[in-house]
């Protein structure tokens, strides 16, 4: 089933990859035209409501709730999260709000810009929260914490508040927008599997699995040939063009030195 869905996804992706994302490179975060508004939020990592970049969120909630959304990210993208929380009236004190972002492994992601934990006075009507994430890398060492392609989780909540203000109604507007282009070079490596966490219930194994002796490759020659050649890409074109230019320049240089001698012969 998994392979089936994977191939289906691949077929889909072929179409998606051909059409460049039109919602990219918006200077100010605006919802993509035609995107449907999400009116829900999850309350756990597992139950996070899926979002697409550019899809606006509008949800009413209670102060103190932990609201979760999940969005997919691809290599080369920079995501910007903007949220506005319309606060309840008659509050008793200041409140501090936060939007936290986690990657598919639930590792905390840093914000490079934006007011991640703003504080609202007791009289404030609303509070604006923002967070710009780092550019998603196509590959990173397993030991690093660099942002990688996969699922990202957004958690919005209040972190400091007088207890009597908990439970009051709020309205949350949130938008995840993508800036930056998805142009990454294959030389930077590639993540074999995106950081998409499994959602199935696990099974406890009884015995340690053994490696099935893998069928030996037919011969080493075939492998080494494909291994030697660099992958198809723009570097082939650049380098070939360079060679052609060098050849032309060589002929030109040769001609520059020959011409005076021919003139002398003619004279």
């Amino acid at each position: 089933m998994r392979t089936l869905s994977a191939t289906a996804a691949a077929l889909l992706a072929a179409g998606v990859a051909l059409a460049p994302a039109t919602a990219l490179a918006a200077p100010t975060p605006t919802p993509s035209p035609g995107a449907t508004t999400v009116t829900k939020a999850g309350t756990t990592f597992l139950g996070a409501t899926p979002l697409a970049a550019g899809q606006p969120v509008r949800v009413s909630a209670s102060t103190g709730e932990y609201l979760y959304w999940a969005f997919p990210a691809a290599a080369g993208e920079i995501h910007e999260i903007t949220a506005t929380v319309a606060l309840a009236q008659n509050r008793s004190g200041r409140s501090t709000w936060t939007v936290e972002v986690f990657d598919g492994l639930r590792r905390r992601q840093a914000c490079t810009a934006g007011a991640q934990t703003p504080t609202a006075d007791a009289s404030a009507r609303s509070v604006a929260i923002g967070c710009t994430l780092r550019r998603v890398r196509p590959w990173a060492e397993p030991w690093s914490a660099d942002p990688l392609p996969g699922t990202y989780y957004v958690r919005l909540t209040v972190v400091e508040i007088p207890e009597p203000d908990l439970g009051l109604p709020i309205d949350v507007d949130l938008l995840v927008s993508t800036t930056g282009d998805a142009d990454t070079s294959s030389d930077d490596g590639r993540l074999e599997a995106a950081l998409v966490p499994p959602a199935n219930a696990g099974t406890v194994l009884d015995t340690e699995p053994t490696v099935a002796p893998e069928a030996e490759e037919e011969s080493g020659w075939n492998l080494s040939l494909t291994g030697w050649l660099p992958e198809a890409g723009s570097r082939w074109i650049w380098t070939t063009a360079g060679g052609v230019l060098a050849a032309v320049a060589g002929v030109v240089g040769f001609a520059l030195t020959r011409r005076p001698s021919t003139r002398r012969v003619a004279g």
Binding site: P230, G233, W238, A241, G242, L245, V252, G253, T257, R258
Partner: peptide, 24 residues
Amino acid sequence: DLGRGWVLLLLLTLAGLLTGLVTG
């Protein structure tokens, strides 16, 4: 294993030119 970019083109062209001049 391969290169990319305008600097590469410039370098290869200059190298070709130089080789042509010397050969000439």
